[in-house]
Structure formats: C-alpha cells, structure tokens
C-alpha cells in the first residue's frame, strides 16, 4: 500500500499544505532570489538548515560560481507622439544605457524576417519586437536573441514584447544572450499591451520616439551553491534517483512559482517518504539548483562534477513548469523504460493522474538526459504558468496549496517506486 500511503499523507493527512507553507515562509522572508544576490545566498543557507533540521541525510552544499547581474533603476518614456511612461523589465545580462538614457525613433517589427527586410530602417533606432505568442519555446527566441539581431542591423537598443500567454500590463523578464563580435546594446521587455499599441501607431505612419534608461550592471561571477539532501539507499546506496527544482529566481515577484514550487515539492517528496519510514533500495537525492535562470549554471557544474558516476543514475527528475494540478509526467527514455514508467504512473489512479507524455526535460536535467539517462518532468497547465512567469505576479498568491499537495504526491510516488525497484530503469 505504499502509493496509497504516500497519497493519503500528502493530500489528506497531516503533511497536506506543508510544501506550500514551507515555501511561503521562505519567500515571504527572503523574497526573490536572483543569481549573485544576497537574497539567494540567504535562501540557500535557510533551506540548508531546514533540510538538516528535517532529518534528511547527507545534507550539504556544493560550491558553484554564478553570474551576478543587477538591473538598477530603469524606465522607458514614450516622448512622441505623446508623453507616456511604459512598464519595462530589463533582461538578464543586458548592459545599461548612459545616464541620460537613449532617445531614439522606434522601428516596430513583428518578426526577425521583417527586421531583415527593413534592416536599412533600423540603423540608429530602438527596435521594438511585437512577435505573437505562439508557444514559450517558439516565442522566447525573441527575448534571447532580440538584442543581437537588432544590433546586427545597427539598432541602438531593443524593446521586446513579453513572452507571456496572457497579460494584465505585466512585463516579464528573463535571460538574453549577446554574441561575440556583435555590439552589445541594452535590451528590455515591454508589455504585450505597449508592444501592440506601438505597432498600431507605427502602422499609421506616425513617428514614435522613446527615451530608454537602464542602470543594469554586470559584475564578476560570485559564489553560490547547489543544495543537496538524501535518503540513502538500503541496498544500492551508490545508485541515484535525482529529484530536483531550482532555488534561484528572477528579481521580481517572489519567485514562488518559478521555481519555488518545483523546489519545494521535490523536498516534500523526500519528506513524505521519510515520514512514512520508507527507505528505497537506491538513494533518493534532492538537488536544489542554483542559477538555473542564467542557463543552468549550477546544474552544468554539478554535471561536470558527477558525470563520472553517470552509470549509477537511474532517473533524473525536475519540476520547473509549475506545481498546479498535474496532467501527468513527461518522460524521455527508451521504450522499455517508458513502459515501466507507465506502470509506475498507474499507481496514481486514485488521483486520476496516470498519463506519461513525451519530452521529459528541464534546463537542469537536460545534461543527463542528453547523455542517455532517463528523465522526467512534471506537466501541468502551462498556459497558466506563463501568465505569471518571470513577472511581478509570481507570488504565493499564484499557487494553490491543494494542487501542490497533489503534485508532491505524484513526485513522491514516482521517485520512491523507481528508486525502490529491484533494477535500475533500462537505458
């Protein structure tokens, strides 16, 4: 009755709402946790102590060098055709503007193709991207590459429509990348509303002028940590089922959903198993990654350090797409392993969450998956997730404790059973 016992404890028993309450305590105390910030390091130290206090084994911190970027003060003022202050969020790793800002005419485009067609018009201007939201994976390239593509055609700065599935005038930040040999220009996200408005104004042939000020600064890399805790395996302690989420966030809202929820249901999975006095045959290892938002920096360094033991990893799991009511598990692995995962998920029939989808993935576990280790991720309502993603709206209010209970139950059953099977998952 192991699966039933986990479900009962997580959803109906004394552990219900625990992951939500632990997370609320952390994010209400510390706030958002940007890579390189004191907030993140305080959160890591508090979580490390709480993991030790909760009786988990082999609790330790693994050092990582992480990027340190600060946004500083920032603003965008439309000065023509009317005075209008726009909400913006600078993008991670962006350079700042001169103190007086950059004042320039705007060129609005809907795609990179349109930018190429109108390249001659872009020189000396601020490029505004008004790309449609198709999916996160499709649309995010404008956020990541928008500055580079604009700089290639001589733009002074870029303003990018937020990559969001819905907007109530909310700018959404995120990471962006410069390219060697291409001039670095300041870049920020604007709201869906303002991107559409400027597109409409420009379509009438009206000139738009914007003053953009950004106080962003890139500092040298700083010290941080991946946070690790375990339930040591009883028969094959050297073999690992890795359960994870990331502890860092952007510097807006509370980072409660991305990825406080994922990190804390991962912790909850081990807590549930421990509370029930269970000890799987192989080790359940919780890893709370640092600096995921800057491109899986903590996970990359963990992989370099631990890949020598890759043959001992049965399954890597990451929750980084929300902890709303799960629709199932995304899984990447061989057909044989998938068949086993389908059997494991059938244990969750009491919650009516049994589906195994394709494309198990996560920024932090992809290193392992690409090297052949089976990987799983939690799937829920992604549309809702991207309402709040990287915005001031990412707070505890965006989470639901009851849905987190269910997500934690799924996470615990899957991780425990795979860790306790007589054999590792086949590759």
């Amino acid at each position: 009755d192991v699966a039933k016992a986990i479900i009962n404890l997580a959803v109906y028993g004394r552990a219900q709402n625990r992951s939500y309450e632990r997370l609320a305590h952390l994010v209400d105390t510390v706030g958002p946790r940007l890579s390189g910030s004191k907030n993140l390091e305080e959160a890591i130290q508090l979580t490390y102590q709480s993991l030790k206090d909760s009786g988990l084994e082999n609790v330790h911190l693994e050092p990582v060098k992480v990027p340190h970027w600060e946004r500083g003060e920032e603003s965008a003022m439309m000065v023509k055709p009317r005075l209008y202050k726009m909400a913006i969020l600078g993008l991670g790793s962006s350079i700042g503007t001169p103190a007086e800002g950059i004042t320039a005419e705007v060129l609005v485009v809907n795609s990179f193709d349109e930018l190429q067609r109108r390249a001659i018009e872009a020189k000396g201007k601020i490029v505004v991207y008004n790309q449609p939201y198709i999916s996160y994976a499709t649309s995010v390239k404008y956020r990541v590459q928008g500055a580079v593509e604009a700089a290639k055609v001589g733009a002074l700065a870029s303003l990018i429509r937020s990559v969001a599935s819905f907007s109530i005038y909310s700018p959404h930040t995120g990471n962006q990348k410069y390219q060697d040999g291409v001039t670095k220009i300041p870049t920020a996200c604007i709201t869906v509303e303002d991107a559409e408005m400027m597109s409409r104004i420009a379509s009438h042939g009206t000139t738009i002028v914007v003053n953009l000020k950004m106080g962003a600064v890139n500092y040298p890399d700083t010290d941080s940590f991946n946070t690790v805790a375990e339930i040591t395996g009883s028969r094959h302690p050297e073999q690992i089922v890795l359960v994870s989420g990331h502890l860092d966030s952007w510097d807006v809202g509370q980072g409660a959903m991305d990825d406080g929820g994922g990190a804390f249901i991962s912790w909850e999975a081990l807590s549930l198993i421990k509370d029930l006095g269970l000890r799987p045959k192989r080790t359940l290892r919780l890893v709370l990654w640092t600096a995921e938002e800057q491109g899986g920096v903590g996970a990359s360094q963990y992989y370099q350090l631990h890949k020598v033991n890759i043959s001992q990893y049965s399954l890597v799991m990451e929750s980084d797409a929300g902890t709303y009511l799960p629709t199932g598990l995304q899984f990447t692995g061989s057909d044989k392993a998938r068949s086993i995962m389908e059997e494991v998920m059938s244990l969750l029939r009491p919650l009516n969450i049994t589906q195994v989808f394709t494309k198990g993935e996560g920024e932090d576990i992809n290193f392992w998956i690409q090297a052949g280790v089976p990987g799983a991720s939690l799937l829920d309502d992604l549309n809702k997730y991207f309402f709040f993603h990287h915005s001031h709206g990412d707070t505890m209010t965006a989470l639901d404790p009851k849905q987190m209970n269910v997500a934690a139950a799924v996470w615990a059953v899957v991780s425990y059973v795979v860790a306790d099977l007589d054999e590792m998952l086949p590759r």
Binding site: V344, V417, D422, E423, P426, R427
Partner: peptide
C-alpha cells in the same frame, strides 16, 4: 559503455509489472 553496464535488465517486463503492482 558505462551507462549500459549498470542497467542491463534481468527481469522480464511481466515481472517488473508485477513488482510495481505491489506498490498499489
């Protein structure tokens, strides 16, 4: 090679299926 060494299944799928059913 290292990846596959530790993961050669000894059990049949039927046996694994029965094993997992034991956790219901």
């Amino acid at each position: 090679k290292a990846i596959h060494k530790a993961s050669t299944p000894q059990k049949t799928f039927k046996e694994i299926q029965e094993e997992i059913a034991g956790y219901t």
